[in-house]
Simulated scan of single mutants.
Amino acid sequence: MYGFLVLAVFLFNCIICPIPIEYAKFLLLIIVLLYIYGIHNARHVKINEKNLYLKNLTEEMTIVHISDIHVGSLIRDSLMRKTVEKINEVNPDIVIISGDLADGTCSIGPNHFDVFKESNSPIIFTPGNHDDYPDLECVINAAENAKITVLNNESMKFKGVNIYGLPFSFYHNSQCNFNLNKNETNLLIYHVPMNWDEFIEMGFDIQLSGHTHGGQFYPATYFIKRMFPYSRGLFEKNRSYLNVTDGIGTFGPPIRVGTHCDMSVLKLKRKN
């Protein structure tokens, strides 16, 4: 992206409207510094703590919500290891990965995610769109080998919370057949931050999503807000919550400007 900006400055200066060489050098320096900062920023995980107050909660708990790690040609053990170190630093009750564990830029072997075995907390994963690209079966196999619980159109109960994993689709109606008890706390893992109103109506108290990367870098951050009304952050409506994480990894250019590698630490608390 920023390489195109360098080219644009060059073409503008040479063809359209020549500007003093000092100004051109300054613009190019700013672009290069932004790129260097973006690479550095994309490799440092930031912890964001958030409180969620739920009326039907039977036991308070802490969830680490991450997404979009994009393990592939550019992202391997280093970022996964940093992520696990941060998880162990937080020491949550459970970790939830809401899709795109894999990137699709390379095949996934059975031991690709083994770094996650070092997590002191149990991990749950529901696939996203990129997990289909390298062969979903291989991604699931590698996740299970790393002691990660895969919820692929399945559910489980953890400390009184019903956790449902709905696999990626822009059209959920054909596959979402969960029967919910609305008197209990129901959590949905769904990669794309869409259909929130419908999921609230079904009885979900929490939806955990990713996919958007928060736009990842300027100016894409502005465009992603137009594509997804809930593009990043924690939202509350009708006593229900939607958390959209910026993700851990990157898609395309390995840079982040205006966003961070986001580890959401969700504190589930009883509502008085």
Rank of each mutant, 00 (worst) to 15 (best):
G104M: 02
G104P: 05
G104Y: 01
G104R: 02
T105W: 03
T105N: 02
T105Q: 05
T105S: 15
T105C: 05
C106I: 12
C106Y: 06
C106E: 15
C106L: 12
S107A: 11
S107L: 13
I108A: 05
I108R: 08
I108M: 09
I108K: 06
G109D: 15
G109F: 12
G109Y: 12
G109E: 13
P110V: 06
P110K: 14
P110Q: 11
P110W: 01
P110G: 03
N111T: 15
N111I: 09
N111K: 15
N111F: 13
H112I: 11
H112N: 10
H112V: 14
H112R: 15
H112C: 13
H112Y: 12
F113I: 11
F113T: 09
F113M: 12
F113Y: 13
D114C: 11
D114Q: 12
V115I: 15
V115M: 11
F116I: 10
F116S: 06
E118S: 14
E118V: 00
E118T: 07
S119K: 08
S119W: 05
S119Q: 09
S119E: 10
S119T: 10
N120D: 12
N120L: 14
N120Y: 09
S121N: 04
P122T: 09
P122W: 06
P122N: 10
P122M: 07
I123Y: 04
I123M: 11
I124V: 13
I124S: 03
F125A: 03
F125E: 07
F125V: 07
F125W: 14
F125C: 08
F125P: 05
T126K: 05
T126D: 09
T126E: 04
T126C: 15
P127E: 04
P127V: 05
P127M: 07
P127K: 04
P127N: 05
G128D: 03
G128Q: 04
N129R: 04
N129I: 08
N129H: 11
N129L: 04
D131S: 03
D131V: 02
D132E: 14
D132H: 13
D132N: 14
Y133Q: 08
Y133S: 10
P134Y: 00
P134T: 02
P134N: 08
P134D: 01
D135E: 14
D135H: 07
D135I: 00
L136H: 02
L136I: 15
L136S: 03
L136R: 12
L136Y: 01
L136Q: 10
L136N: 05
L136T: 00
L136G: 09
E137A: 08
E137L: 08
C138P: 00
C138Q: 14
C138E: 13
V139C: 11
V139W: 01
V139E: 04
V139R: 01
V139S: 07
I140D: 01
I140A: 04
I140F: 04
I140Q: 06
I140L: 10
N141T: 11
N141P: 00
N141M: 09
A142D: 06
A143I: 10
A143D: 07
A143E: 06
A143T: 09
A143F: 11
